[in-house]
Computed example of a mutant assay.
Amino acid sequence: MKKTILSLALLVGTAAVANAQSTRFGVKAGVNYTTFSGDNVDNAKYKFGAVGGLAANFGFSESLSLQTELLYSQKGTEIKGSDYNFKLNYIELPIMFRYTLGDGNGPFLQAGPQIGYLAKAKLSDGNGKNIDLDNDAYQNIALGYVAAIGYQLPAGLSIEGRFNGDINSVGKDGDANDQQRNRVFSLQLGYMFGGK
């Protein structure tokens, strides 16, 4: 099932890029506000993390485009009543269709699928001491979705609020966190080179 979803997303993305009329590249940076959702998450609370990377926008018209990004994203959660801090760092590839309400600038909406690769998983206590985790207990691949609303300035600068969630669990079946999924709110700044 995961391979089918990934294959469809890549096929749609490849076909869309082939039909693009204009292409712009840029950079992204921002902050994540992240926790776990799912079963047995009563003690999970939100924590902050960083997100940043590269972006490419393939325009089909003044209003419609495909935005792909390659991001390094810090996720995880803190545990209420303790100082334990789950740190899950991902390399992510969102593929989003973007609709701009103006002529390529102004307010925009975007949404699409996302695939992530777990680069590092660790747990720290209140003293900042790292606790060894069995990384084999965590899913290497995270499949999810992204939705965002933002504003694009003619000079290339943009700001957006974004939500992304995973459809598969953080942990493997029968292992730690096998019923929890990442849930992330982000505030991101971007700059696309070649602004009007």
Rank of each mutant, 00 (worst) to 15 (best):
P113V: 05
N164G: 05
L11Y: 10
V31I: 12
R24T: 13
I149N: 13
S73G: 04
T100S: 03
V31D: 01
A18K: 11
N89I: 11
G104H: 02
G81R: 00
A44F: 12
A16P: 06
Q110E: 14
K45C: 09
K172H: 02
Q74E: 13
L153S: 04
N43Q: 15
K3R: 11
G112H: 00
G161P: 02
D175N: 11
N57Y: 03
N43I: 05
Y72F: 15
T23V: 11
D166K: 10
P113Y: 03
K129D: 11
G49P: 03
V27Y: 12
G112S: 00
L101R: 08
G106R: 00
S73F: 12
Y33A: 08
V12D: 08
Y99R: 02
F25R: 09
K196E: 14
R24S: 14
I115G: 04
K3Y: 07
P107K: 01
N19C: 10
G112L: 00
L8E: 09
A119H: 11
Y90G: 00
T77A: 10
D83S: 07
G190K: 03
F163D: 04
A18I: 06
I159P: 01
Q180W: 03
I159A: 10
L11E: 12
Y138G: 08
D134T: 08
A121E: 05
G52W: 03
M96Q: 15
G13K: 09
T34E: 11
S82Y: 00
V146W: 10
T77C: 05
T4R: 10
N57K: 10
L143E: 12
N140F: 05
M1R: 10
G126T: 02
E62V: 06
N19V: 07
F58I: 01
D103F: 00
L66R: 13
S169M: 08
T4F: 06
F86I: 07
S124F: 05
G26T: 03
S7K: 10
F193E: 03
I91A: 01
G59C: 03
F25K: 09
N127S: 15
F185Q: 07
K45L: 07
F86S: 05
P107W: 01
R24W: 04
L133H: 06
K129F: 14
F36C: 01
G106Q: 00
G26N: 06
T77R: 03
N127G: 14
V184T: 10
N135T: 15
D39L: 12
G126E: 01
G38H: 12
K47T: 15
Q21W: 07
N105T: 15
G174F: 02
K28T: 04
S158K: 00
R24I: 06
I115V: 15
L6M: 14
A148S: 15
I131E: 10
A147D: 14
A15V: 13
Y90P: 01
Q110H: 15
E160Y: 01
K122L: 06
